[in-house]
C-alpha cells in the first residue's frame, strides 16, 4: 500500500469517528497578508534591532533629506536620520499605545457594562445615561478634554484614547450580558441548581466576552489612529521620540520637498490599521462558524 493510500484510509476512519465539523476554509489571501504584516510589526516592536538598518536617532547632517534609496529605504529626515529605522523604532510605541488604550477602554467598558446589566434598575439607568452622554461627544474631543485636564504626553494620550472608546464597549457588553443572562441555557443551569457565581463565571461571561475580544482587535487599529492624531497635534508622544504621529507632524514642514518623511509613517499607520482590522474580521468569521 502506498503512503498516499495509507493516508486516505486514515482520513476516512478518522472522519467516521469524529464529528462532522463545518468545513474550515483555507484562510483568505488577505488574511495571510495581514497576518504577515502583524508578524513584522511584532518583531519591530519587541526586537527592533533585528529589522533596523541604522540607529534610529543617529544624526548625520551630511545625509539630510535623502530620497529613498538602497542605503536608506524610506529616505532620511532633516537631521539625516534613517526614516525606515525610525518607523521601526516607533512601532513599539504606537502598538503599545494602541493595545493599552484598547485594553483600558475594554476594561472600563466591561465594568460599566456589568454594572448596568447586574446592578439593578437604578444603576442600569444611571450607567446607560452616562454612556449616552459620553457618546454625544466625538471620541477625539473627549480625548482632547482629558489631555487638557491632565496635560500632554504619551501616557495621558493613551488613557485619553482608552476613555473615549469605553462607552462603545460598555454598550456592547451590556447588550451581550442582558441577552445571555436570559438565554435558555443560563436558565437550564439555574434549574440544575448551580450557584449564581458559577453561572456567571462559566456561562455568562465567557459567552459575552469572547466575541468581544474579537471585536477589540478591530478597536486596536482605531486606537492607533487616534493616538497618532493626538501625537500629530503635539499632544501625545513628544519629539524626538520616534512615534508615527509625531513623525508625521515633523515631516509636515517638508511635505513639498521630502514627501517620504510623511508618506512612510502614514503608510505604517494605514497598514497597521488595515491589518488588525482584517485579522479582527477573520477572527469574527471564525467565531461565528464555530457557533
Amino acid at each position: 500500500m502506498s503512503e498516499l493510500e495509507l493516508r486516505q484510509t486514515t482520513v476516512v476512519s478518522a472522519a467516521e469517528h469524529e464529528a462532522p465539523r463545518p468545513a474550515r476554509r483555507m484562510p483568505r489571501i488577505g488574511t495571510l497578508l495581514a497576518f504577515a504584516f502583524v508578524a513584522f510589526l511584532a518583531v519591530a516592536a519587541f526586537a527592533p534591532g533585528l529589522v533596523q538598518t541604522h540607529p534610529p536617532n543617529a544624526i548625520s547632517a551630511a545625509e539630510a533629506f535623502q530620497a529613498p534609496s538602497f542605503a536608506h529605504w524610506f529616505g532620511t529626515d532633516e537631521s539625516g536620520r534613517d526614516v525606515y529605522s525610525r518607523v521601526v523604532a516607533g512601532t513599539g510605541t504606537s502598538l503599545l499605545i494602541g493595545v493599552t488604550a484598547t485594553f483600558i477602554g475594554l476594561l472600563l467598558g466591561a465594568v460599566l457594562g456589568v454594572l448596568a446589566s447586574f446592578g439593578g434598575r437604578a444603576v442600569d439607568f444611571g450607567v446607560s445615561r452616562l454612556v449616552e452622554v459620553l457618546f454625544a461627544f466625538p471620541g477625539l474631543l473627549l480625548a482632547l478634554l482629558v489631555i487638557v485636564i491632565a496635560g500632554p504626553g504619551p501616557v495621558t494620550a493613551t488613557i485619553a484614547v482608552g476613555l473615549s472608546t469605553a462607552p462603545g464597549y460598555a454598550r456592547i457588553i451590556r447588550g451581550q450580558l442582558v441577552a445571555i443572562r436570559s438565554a435558555p441555557f443560563v436558565e437550564s443551569a439555574r434549574v440544575l441548581g448551580h450557584a449564581p457565581g458559577r453561572i456567571l463565571a462559566r456561562h455568562i461571561l465567557p459567552n459575552a466576552l469572547v466575541p468581544l475580544l474579537v471585536l477589540a482587535t478591530l478597536g486596536i487599529g482605531q486606537a492607533i489612529v487616534w493616538a497618532s492624531a493626538l501625537s500629530y497635534l503635539g499632544l501625545g508622544a513628544q519629539p524626538p521620540a520616534a512615534e508615527w504621529g509625531a513623525m508625521l507632524a515633523a515631516g509636515r514642514t517638508y511635505l513639498g520637498t521630502a514627501w517620504w518623511m510623511t508618506v512612510f509613517p502614514g503608510l505604517m499607520i494605514v497598514g497597521t490599521t488595515v491589518a488588525t482590522t482584517v485579522l479582527g474580521r477573520a477572527l469574527t468569521r471564525r467565531d461565528q462558524e464555530v457557533r
Binding site: 435558555p184 441555557f185 436558565e187 437550564s188 434549574v191 440544575l192
Partner: peptide, 16 residues
C-alpha cells in the same frame, strides 16, 4: 433543585 430535572422542546438553545 437537583431533585427536579427539566427537558425542553428546543434542546439546542438549552445548551451552552
Amino acid at each position: 433543585r437537583r431533585r427536579i430535572g427539566a427537558v425542553y422542546q428546543d434542546a439546542l438553545s438549552s445548551f451552552d
